[in-house]
Simulated scan of single mutants.
Amino acid sequence: MSDTVRYAMAQSLTMAGRGIRLSRRNPDAVITSMMLPIMLMLIFVYFFGGAIDTGTEYVTYVVPGVLLLCAGFGSATTAVGVSEDMKGGIIDRFRSLDIGGTTILAGHVVASTARNLVSTALVLGVAFLIGFRPSATLPAALAAAGILVGFIVAVSWLSAVAGLLAKSPEAAGGFTFFMMFLPYPSSAFVPIDTMPDWLHGFADHQPVTPVIESLRGLLLGLPVGSAPWIASAWCAGILAVALGLSGVLFKARTA
């Protein structure tokens, strides 16, 4: 590993530490992003679960979707943090210290991923308490974890792009709505074949569905077919596009 790569990694970790410290100064947003997915899971399981036939216990069916909701809520903090940095004068100070845009954004993404992993652990802990019982083998569990982390990282970089595009932190926070909406027209909460026919095409081919199907199949020991490969391709594609856009937008905003 070259000295340049080591230096960039050290800078990114320093920026990630800064992002985590900033989160500690805004506990309301962090608590909301962690608790809201849990509340939604409890609402779906206990309010609506008895009326939805998925062929299994509803808590077993719904947990993968809630994990992706968790990632969406958590990533909104990244958009807000990037927007706040761009609005203030901190970017000029970082640039005077020879800290590049990719490093700054990577710090936000790493901090977001860490927060999301904590949220994921909380969701899984509550799910276990209310009856979720996965039957995954160790390789399957590791594969599910890899896909979930890949999705979190990809969505966090996409949130960084939203933060660069937004004119204010409040507008950047609106990214939550998009990420909160996307799991609903998917297999997250009900089987797709129960939806109207005109919605099937979008629900079957949007990025959230293969990720959810992969997590559900891997965690429950069910056949997954090509879903993990499709999910991985979506995550890689989103990440590649987000990385490219973030570099262009950061240069444009700081020119």
Score class of each variant (00 low, 15 high):
169 P>C: 01
203 A>R: 05
130 I>P: 11
62 V>L: 05
120 T>D: 05
237 G>N: 04
147 I>G: 05
232 S>W: 10
140 A>G: 11
113 T>K: 00
19 G>Y: 11
206 Q>D: 06
82 V>N: 01
115 R>I: 01
194 T>D: 10
80 V>R: 12
199 L>A: 15
182 L>M: 14
32 T>Y: 15
232 S>I: 13
12 S>P: 07
16 A>S: 11
105 L>H: 06
154 A>I: 06
138 L>E: 13
44 F>P: 07
67 L>D: 05
111 A>L: 09
37 P>Y: 04
63 V>H: 01
63 V>C: 03
148 L>N: 07
172 A>D: 03
118 V>L: 13
55 G>N: 12
208 V>N: 03
115 R>W: 04
215 L>R: 06
180 M>Q: 13
63 V>N: 00
248 V>R: 15
121 A>G: 14
99 I>K: 08
160 A>Q: 11
144 A>E: 04
220 L>C: 03
11 Q>Y: 02
238 I>Q: 08
59 V>F: 08
224 V>Q: 00
143 A>D: 09
52 I>N: 01
35 M>F: 14
105 L>T: 05
9 M>A: 15
52 I>S: 09
161 V>T: 10
83 S>E: 01
77 T>P: 01
17 G>I: 02
133 R>H: 10
37 P>C: 07
240 A>C: 08
199 L>E: 03
244 G>S: 07
64 P>K: 06
223 P>Q: 08
244 G>A: 13
24 R>F: 13
231 A>F: 00
157 W>L: 05
21 R>S: 13
219 L>Y: 07
255 A>F: 09
225 G>M: 05
22 L>G: 10
236 A>D: 04
32 T>P: 00
5 V>R: 13
245 L>I: 05
75 S>D: 09
230 I>C: 00
89 G>H: 11
64 P>Y: 04
139 P>S: 04
